[in-house]
């Protein structure tokens, strides 16, 4: 039995051309693929890697930035709050002060008004009394002259009557 067909290359020659063809075709394929396919693809993958990296960095930066801003805003808010408190307090103080001032002024004004009113009343009263006195005197003179039918000068008469009335006033 001939088992030669089981042996590689048993037909007695070596296919050097196939070796060469395999090598050349494979190497050309590898070169072409590197140039037209793997190279660009690797470039894109590299680019994506860098993009992801930069995005992560950017996100990290944004996070830090926002934390900083938050801190800033917090402190600003705190400042504003304390400022508002001081403003309110000072306004309160100012208001109290003003109230007191207004009250004192009003009080003084009222007193002044009252006093002037009292004074006016007093003078009016005196005026009225004087007028009544004068009227009474002239009436009395008229009455007396009518009663006595006597020629007494009006001046003497009025002086007499005034005296009488004054006495009467004191007696009261």
């Amino acid at each position: 039995m001939n088992l030669d067909y089981l042996v590689l290359g048993s037909d007695g020659h070596f296919n050097g051309g196939d070796v060469l063809a395999t090598l050349v075709i494979f190497l050309i394929l590898m070169f072409l693929l590197k140039k037209f396919a793997w190279g660009p693809l690797m470039g894109v993958m590299q680019q994506r890697e860098e993009l992801v990296k930069s995005e992560i960095d950017a996100a990290e930066n944004a996070r830090k930035e926002s934390a900083k801003l938050l801190e800033e805003q917090k402190s600003l808010l705190k400042d504003a709050r304390t400022e508002a408190q001081t403003i309110v307090e000072s306004a309160k103080k100012q208001g109290e002060l003003q109230r007191d001032e207004i009250i004192t002024a009003a009080r003084a004004e009222a007193n002044r008004l009252k006093e002037s009113a009292v004074r006016e009343i007093e003078t009016e009263k005196e005026k009225a009394i004087a007028a009544v006195r004068a009227e009474v005197v002239s009436l009395s003179v008229l009455a007396a002259s009518k009663v006595l039918e006597k020629e007494i000068s009006e001046e003497d008469n009025s002086a007499l009557i005034k005296e009488t009335i004054a006495k009467a006033g004191e007696a009261k």
Partner: peptide, 30 residues
């Protein structure tokens, strides 16, 4: 000595692989 069938199939293989890779890597996107 060339086995023309082997050479032919090697060329066809190389062309198929190249076409697959070439077409797949057109219009590359992130």
């Amino acid at each position: 000595t060339f086995n023309l069938s082997t050479v032919l199939m090697l060329v066809i293989t190389a062309v198929v692989v190249f076409l697959i890779a070439f077409i797949a890597t057109r219009n590359l996107k992130l």
